[in-house]
Simulated scan of single mutants.
Amino acid sequence: MAEAHQAVAFQFTVSPDGIDLQLSHEALRQIYLSGLHSWKKKFIRFKNGVMTGVYPGSPTGLMLVVGLYMGRAKYVQADPSLALFTKVGAHLPVSRYMSFEKQQVVGGVLVGTGLWVAIFFTMRTALKWLLSWHGWMYARHGTVPWRTRIWLVLVKIFSGRRNPQLYSFQTSLPQLPLPSVKDTINRYLESARPLMDDEQYLRMEGLAKDFEKGLGPKLQWYLKLKSWWATNYVSDWWEEYIYLRGRGPIMVNSNYYAMVRSNSQEQPGHVDRSPKMGT
């Protein structure tokens, strides 16, 4: 309690002479440093969010594109704003606040920024298409076909700058494909067959057919609607309803778990160093 009492920023005692107020400068300093550290972390998170949001674009690429666009417009003596402020001036009194030269500069920067946005969106879409190709997985071991070589070069080109951050490629990942109801049922029956006898399996087949004709298409429609709206139709629901709301053990019920024991006879003082794996 003495340490907690010393850490309080404001201390006061009541006496017959009045209230004696004391300020702990060290506590106030720690509060200031804690707040400063918190705001630094918020700024870093915001900056990282912007950097990953515009990936594979970068601030250097923005300045390069805007500079090249403004230089070309000046070289060919064209209006870099593409008459943007002329159109806006028909509805708003822009000329009161900016001269014609400033309008051209500001308009040129805006048009150049739009061009930069279009470039990195095109690169991101192309990268998503490239990552959707899985032909490289089926190549014979030890050989790299010419299609895979071309694919690797294009992925490297459209990946943009070096040293990406953790979530830089999040928006470039292909959309998770939604399997059909029939395919889901077939996979379930295939995985459940070794765990059931013939009578139980026939009963499960009947229940699966009833599900395919009844409730399955309705639930499939909901999943299809979610897959159009969300980047991953299963991840957030899996996290919330399986990991957070589920009251059963994670192992066996949600995750695979394996434990391998050594076959060697244990001796006194023997330590079991067999691998134990859990995912």
Results as ranks from 00 to 15, higher is better:
residue 39 W to I: 14
residue 265 Q to W: 05
residue 249 P to W: 09
residue 114 G to C: 14
residue 54 V to Q: 07
residue 196 M to T: 05
residue 12 F to I: 00
residue 109 V to N: 01
residue 146 W to I: 10
residue 183 D to Y: 05
residue 196 M to E: 06
residue 92 L to Q: 11
residue 189 L to W: 06
residue 166 L to E: 15
residue 174 P to W: 08
residue 98 M to C: 13
residue 259 M to C: 10
residue 258 A to W: 13
residue 128 K to T: 15
residue 111 V to Q: 02
residue 172 S to Y: 01
residue 240 E to N: 10
residue 249 P to R: 13
residue 61 G to D: 08
residue 154 L to G: 00
residue 183 D to N: 05
residue 77 Q to L: 07
residue 157 I to A: 04
residue 274 S to F: 01
residue 139 A to S: 12
residue 19 I to V: 15
residue 187 R to A: 14
residue 111 V to R: 01
residue 49 G to L: 12
residue 275 P to L: 07
residue 220 Q to F: 12
residue 156 K to S: 09
residue 81 S to N: 03
residue 177 P to D: 06
residue 103 Q to L: 04
residue 126 A to E: 10
residue 64 L to W: 12
residue 70 M to F: 01
residue 10 F to H: 14
residue 260 V to Q: 07
residue 17 D to V: 01
residue 265 Q to A: 11
residue 37 H to L: 14
residue 237 W to E: 11
residue 219 L to N: 11
residue 247 R to Q: 05
residue 271 V to I: 14
residue 23 L to M: 09
residue 168 S to C: 04
residue 52 T to E: 15
residue 72 R to D: 00
residue 129 W to R: 08
residue 187 R to V: 05
residue 27 A to T: 02
residue 136 W to D: 10
residue 19 I to R: 01
residue 91 H to G: 05
residue 252 V to D: 08
residue 44 I to N: 10
residue 145 P to W: 06
residue 3 E to H: 11
residue 246 G to M: 08
residue 21 L to R: 01
residue 1 M to D: 09
residue 220 Q to G: 02
residue 100 F to L: 12
residue 58 S to F: 02
residue 156 K to A: 14
residue 243 Y to P: 00
residue 71 G to D: 06
residue 236 D to L: 10
residue 234 V to A: 15
residue 52 T to R: 06
residue 72 R to T: 15
residue 52 T to C: 12
residue 54 V to E: 02
residue 196 M to W: 03
residue 183 D to H: 13
residue 146 W to Q: 09
residue 9 A to R: 06
residue 182 K to C: 00
residue 19 I to E: 04
residue 46 F to I: 08
residue 57 G to L: 03
residue 221 W to H: 09
residue 204 M to R: 15
residue 85 F to N: 02
residue 185 I to L: 06
residue 277 M to W: 12
residue 165 Q to P: 00
residue 258 A to F: 11
residue 156 K to D: 11
residue 90 A to N: 08
residue 63 M to T: 15
residue 68 L to G: 04
residue 88 V to F: 09
residue 194 P to M: 11
residue 90 A to E: 13
residue 171 T to F: 08
residue 199 E to N: 13
residue 102 K to Y: 10
residue 233 Y to E: 06
residue 251 M to D: 13
residue 218 K to G: 02
residue 167 Y to F: 09
